[in-house]
Structures are given as structure tokens and as C-alpha cells.
Design a protein around this nucleic acid. Structure first.
Lengths: 246, 246
DNA sequence: ATGCCGGATTGATTCAGGTCAAGTTTCGAG
DNA sequence: CTCGAAACTTGACCTGAATCAATCCGGCAT
């Protein structure tokens, strides 16, 4: 464990509030793994042996069925993932692959369990994290059921801009086909829908989005704190790109 | 609190494993509420003051946005709901209404919090419940993103049959328009899709479904334990009709 | 530079599912 | 038993998005 990244890990919602001995004890059981881009970390159905903590790079959670594939989330450092599978000790419901070269801290599920049993403060943090993840998935399901592809895209653009500090312009942090899949559409549809939004508050420059009329775009998105809210909710697992990579 | 239903409540995954004093202490802080059919229990955005435990009747969780409405889950006794909102003390993301005359046990969120702090066994149960709910929502999102309306319907029919003990025939436990919304389609589409499945293993008799060729229907559904599995996962909140009303 | 190669765009077409508009059935109130 | 409202079904049509099929573009290795 390098000292430089320790503070960032310590600051995860999962660990922020626990006593230092608990944290140090947990860290002592971890070990590092480095992965090249495009590597499958695990597949849905596998047994969860480790809580994963992404410290560098980018990881995509996706789900497969009947030959189809859908991106469920994209994670950026520093984020923990697959906590729920570890807690229940049940097979992953999603597969994970790196998008970039990534460094991941592996925390054995057994040790996590032991620590939770020992430290009620950690248990409380886990509850909060799980409740937040649940709520994140509820938001995602609402997004899918209630909004059209165009509305989802418009809302995502606004959210992404907000994540980057209300930037009036930003470059997409993932390839468009991944974004398309995350939003539940095809790359072709994303391309067209993006073009359609040009008349509604944005300008395009390759992978760069320029928001020229925030109000107009917000109109098209129909923003709603009960679907889109970032920030207040814990975005460790569920959100697409929780925060700029710093 | 009537003695007759106590065992059923005690048997909830949330309480099954806790010590009796914890359970009794919690029950002492609860009170009953009875509601007529079609009554709004709370609206999305409201503050969560109580953990709800449905003991009799049926409750629907639904989400609204921009004039659209989608059924997110239907609950049958005995089920607890909105645990996540209570844990995080954040606004409900879904609204709730009774479908039938219902009796609900209200457990003040403050008392729940206090009990969790006191009893690590309860904390563990809450973690399990939340992790299970999260996984249930992941399944639902996968279902929406990866399957067509027909596949979702076929899978739901098989799951429902299984819930009723592999019944070869059963009547729909909710109105078709509610089922349609839950499955992410319109009532008209449900009607047509049901008709289309007549050639693929089922027969219809009003609200009764007769499964004549389970294998054929399973073929149309593409069942997958990582989407459809009931049973092993805790279905308290996320599943449509967790169990027959007994 | 040149030539790939994978991703992105654009166009033509298809298709699943939604919308609108009649019917028809069911069921509860009187 | 009758009536009326609500649920359901059916039909015609429309639309959002997927699919199929060319290009187009940009980075990168030769």
C-alpha cells in the first residue's frame, strides 16, 4: 500500500467514519492488483471473494444475457464495488472489465465480514453504502421506465457537466458506444439523438460537448432530484462517473 | 399488536435472527394503521418517518415523472418496505398506495435506528436486507435493459407460477394494467403480448393463465438465475409479489 | 506519408411498442 | 336484475429506436 493513496481510500464513505485501528487492520489484509485495459476482472455468476477498490484507471460493470450486453455502470477512482455481493456472499449479477490500465486494491470478503462484526461503526457505514446503492439503482430504473432516450441523454449531459463543476463544456469521459449502452440505446441512436439535441442547447465538437443554453437543455431533460440528484446520495457504485478523475 | 400475526412478523428476514428483547422492544414502539383501497400512503419526495410493515392487503410502489407513472413493485404480506430511505433518512424515491384494504405496522425510524445501534445482530439483518434489495433492483434493471417486453412477460409468468408452487395455472394477482406498468409496457401491449404467447405455451381464460407447455414458455423467456432467481435472494421489497398471500 | 482499423456518423428500412379509437366484458352499486 | 363505469380487448395507425449498410474520420503502425 502506497502512502500517497491511503488518504483517498480512507475518505471513501465506507471507511471515512470508522476508527483508525479498524481501517488499518483492514488495509493490512489487502493486496494490489494491476490490470491492462480491456481485461475481464470477473464475470457475472462468479463467487465474490474480494471487495474491490478502484484506485487508478476505470472499470465498467456490465450485464450479459442471451448474447446481448448492457453497461450498468462506469466507475472512476476512488470507488469500492460489488459490496452487496460480498455482504450476501452470492454470485455477482454483473461482470466487470477495465476500460483503462487500472490499479485495484483487493480486500478479502472474509476479512471485511470479520471487521464488520467487530466494529459497529463500519457496519453503519456499510448500511449507508448499501442503502445508497439501492437508491441509485431505483433512480436508474426510474430513468429507464419513465424517460425516453432523448430525455435520458439530456439529463446525463447536464449531470456530467455538473460533476465537472458546472463546466459549460467537457469531453465525454468514455467512448460513445459505452455511453450509449449505459443509457440503454445503440451507438447509432446516440449519434442521432446527440445531433437532435443540437437544436436544444448544445453544440458538438467530436467528443466534446458544449452546453450553450443550459435552461433549454434542462427543459429537454426534465431534471428531477428524485431521479438525477448527485451529491447528496452516495454515488460509489451506481452512478456513471461519480466524480471527475481529479 | 395482535398475537396471531406476531410470528409472521418475527419471521421477516429483518427480524428472524435478532434477539427476542430487541424484537419485543421494537414492537413496543410500533402502532397499527388501517387503510382503504387506493389510498396514497406517501408520495415520493416525502420524508421517511416510519419503516412500514405490510401485514394484510397489498401495496404498490410506483414512481412518477413528468405526468408519467410506472409501477416499481407490488408488495404482499408480510413485507417490510422503504428500509433504505429510513436508513439514509432521505426522501422517498417512490410513492406508495394501497391496492386493497390493508393493515400496516408503523415502526418509527428513530426507534429503528436506536435498535440498530444497540443490536449488531439487527444491524447484520439490515445489511442483508439492503444488499438483497439492491440486488433485486439490479435484476430489474437488467430485465429492462436486456429483454424485450415479450421476454419479460414470459419470464414473469414462469416466476409467478413458481411462486405459487409450480402451479400449472393461476389467476393474475393484480389488475393487468398494473402488471403492464410493472413490466414496462402499456395495457394494450400486455394484452397483445399475452395473446402472442398463446402460441408459445400458454392458454388464457380471462385473468387466469394456464401454462400448457412450460418448456416452450421458458424458451420464449430465456430464464436466467442472474435475472429471475427467486428464493435465494431476499425478495422483501424488490420482487413483484414475493409469495402467495397464503 | 500511406494505409489500416476501429469507432463514429449518416442514410434507408424495419420493427417493437405506443397511441388513439371503438367495441366488449366484468363487476359492483342500487 | 339492471345499469353504468372501469377494465380489458381489438383494430388501425404512428413513432421512437433498432437494424443493416455504407461511408467517414482519426490515430497509429509501418
Amino acid at each position: 500500500m502506497r502512502d500517497e493513496e491511503k488518504p483517498a481510500i480512507r475518505n471513501l464513505p465506507l471507511f471515512r467514519t470508522v476508527a483508525t485501528p479498524t481501517f488499518e487492520g483492514l488495509m493490512a489484509t489487502t493486496y494490489w492488483q494491476s490490470f491492462p485495459p480491456q481485461l475481464e476482472l470477473f464475470r457475472q455468476g462468479d463467487r465474490p471473494d474480494f471487495l474491490h477498490i478502484l484506485v487508478e484507471g476505470a472499470v465498467e460493470l456490465h450485464a450479459e444475457w442471451n448474447g446481448r450486453d448492457a453497461v450498468m455502470a462506469v466507475l472512476r477512482p476512488v470507488s469500492s464495488f460489488i459490496l452487496a455481493a460480498c455482504i450476501r456472499d452470492m454470485p455477482y449479477l454483473m461482470s466487470a472489465r477495465t476500460l483503462e490500465r487500472s490499479r485495484i486494491l483487493m480486500l478479502p470478503a472474509v476479512d471485511l465480514h470479520a471487521a464488520i462484526r467487530r466494529d459497529p461503526e463500519l457496519a453503519a457505514a456499510v448500511m449507508n453504502e448499501l442503502a445508497g446503492s439501492y437508491r441509485g439503482m431505483v433512480r436508474q430504473a426510474k430513468n429507464l421506465k419513465l424517460r425516453t432516450a432523448r430525455e435520458r441523454l439530456a439529463a446525463w449531459l447536464l449531470n456530467q457537466s455538473q460533476r465537472e463543476g458546472d463546466a459549460p463544456s467537457f469531453v465525454l469521459p468514455v467512448e460513445k458506444r459505452h455511453l450509449a449502452s449505459y443509457l440503454g440505446m445503440t451507438p447509432e441512436s446516440l449519434s442521432r439523438t446527440l445531433a437532435a439535441l443540437k437544436g436544444r442547447g448544445i453544440t458538438l465538437d467530436g467528443p466534446r460537448i458544449i452546453i450553450v443554453d443550459r435552461a433549454r437543455l434542462a427543459q429537454a431533460a426534465g431534471l428531477d432530484p428524485l431521479i438525477d440528484d448527485l451529491g447528496s446520495e452516495d454515488p460509489t457504485v451506481e452512478a456513471m462517473l461519480p466524480r471527475p478523475s481529479r
